[in-house]
Write a protein that binds this DNA or RNA. Structure first.
Length: 352
DNA sequence: AGCGTAACGGTTGAG
DNA sequence: CACTCAACCGTTACG
């Protein structure tokens, strides 16, 4: 089951959460599922924070902010005022809307650019020229990288503050600097979850058609901080772990039709960087305000037949019906039986 | 004994 | 296309 470096199969992750919801202690879950207690702890902690059982996005790199266009402007500023400070350049990039507050290079980055790329202003490197031309000839990086605008727009039209079109964000209220958010950054997650819960945003979202390419599906891509998430997608990546690592059939049958988890869509796994719950507009989080309400890295536990509206609902339902298992979509086994046997896993009657 | 978490060695994927 | 880098993973060890 354990594949170093790879996430646990979704089935196991789900079972961990299920068992925890049933009141089974983490140490017992750890023993039963033969998963380290650290892993159980981590998965449960994440679930409690984000409502997602899914692993984060693996691999990739964050989009560069020092695009050729930015470098060009920096060069211009430097040429115009050789004594200009990096921080002044930074301010000007913002003032001139070359960048917004979320993708403006750091002062150190600007310094590095000045040192490495613009060090010799009289003789711009061939590298710079070629890069410049190539990028200008096609699309500026910003077009792609800047952000995953649902409808990509040019940087020039980027609203001050980096808010996205079609996304309600209190202007001027982006208080959180756009760092590269950790997958564990769960700021506003509660808000997101509340939103989800209230709207049932995920529930019954079975209208989506699997698209092999997320970025095409939502006109955004990972490179642009995409947080697109096809909620009901059966993304290969959500299944792959199970396939690649020989997830026992028993696990799959127990959960495979149960959870269509869009774990970490390979085409768009950076949803995680958009934060779990991304797409559920949460004021103050630029990087969460992307895509459609159901388009995010959705820590989506989309459940068979829409039984479970959202991870949050899932969570609440289970907790609320702890004593009436028969009504819990989670606890209820697929054949309708409800007992202490979850997905074939024997659960002790008492955990204490 | 149970739990939270940092360290570790590993995988992944964009650049 | 090989490489780098920075993200993530789960296990292990420690407090």
């Amino acid at each position: 089951m354990f594949v170093n470096g790879r996430p646990l199969p979704n089935a196991i992750r789900l079972r961990i959460v299920e068992l925890a919801q049933l009141g089974i202690r983490p140490c017992d879950i750890s023993r039963q599922l033969r998963v380290s207690h650290g892993c159980v702890s981590k998965i449960l902690a994440r679930y409690n924070e984000t409502g997602s059982i899914l692993p984060g996005a693996i691999g990739g790199s964050k989009p560069r902010v020092t695009t050729p266009n930015v470098v060009k402007h920096i060069r211009d500023y430097k040429q115009g005022d050789p004594g200009i400070f990096a921080w002044e350049i930074r301010d000007r990039l913002l003032a001139d809307n070359v960048c917004d507050k979320y993708n403006v290079p750091s002062v150190s980055s600007i310094s590095r650019i000045l040192r490495n790329k613009i060090g010799n202003l009289s003789q711009p490197s061939q590298y710079e020229n070629s890069k410049q031309q190539s990028s200008q000839a096609s699309l500026p990086y910003n077009h792609i990288y800047q952000y995953p605008y649902p409808n990509p727009i040019s940087p020039g039209s980027t609203k001050v503050g980096g808010h996205h079109p079609g996304v309600h964000m209190p202007s001027g209220h982006v208080s959180i600097a756009r760092s590269w958010p950790s997958a564990h950054s769960v700021n506003n997650i509660l808000g997101i979850r509340t939103f989800m819960e209230q709207t049932g945003a995920i529930a019954g979202a079975d209208t989506s058609v699997y698209s092999p390419k997320m970025e095409e599906w939502a006109s955004v891509n990972r490179s642009g901080f995409s947080t697109t998430q096809n909620i009901n997608c059966i993304d290969k990546s959500a299944v792959d772990p199970d396939i690649k690592y020989s997830q026992p059939a028993s696990s799959l049958t127990s959960v495979g039709s149960f959870v269509q988890a869009c774990a970490y869509p390979s085409a768009n796994q950076y949803g995680v960087y958009g934060g779990p719950g991304t797409g559920y507009v949460t004021p103050g989080h630029h990087w969460q305000a992307q895509g459609s309400p159901i388009a995010h890295h959705g820590p989506s536990v989309t459940v068979h037949g829409g039984d479970i509206a959202s991870p949050m609902t899932f969570k609440h339902q289970v907790r609320e019906v702890m004593n009436r298992k028969q009504s819990s979509p989670i606890i209820k086994s697929q054949d309708g039986h409800t007992n202490n046997n979850i997905h074939g896993l024997s659960i002790p009657a008492s955990s204490s």
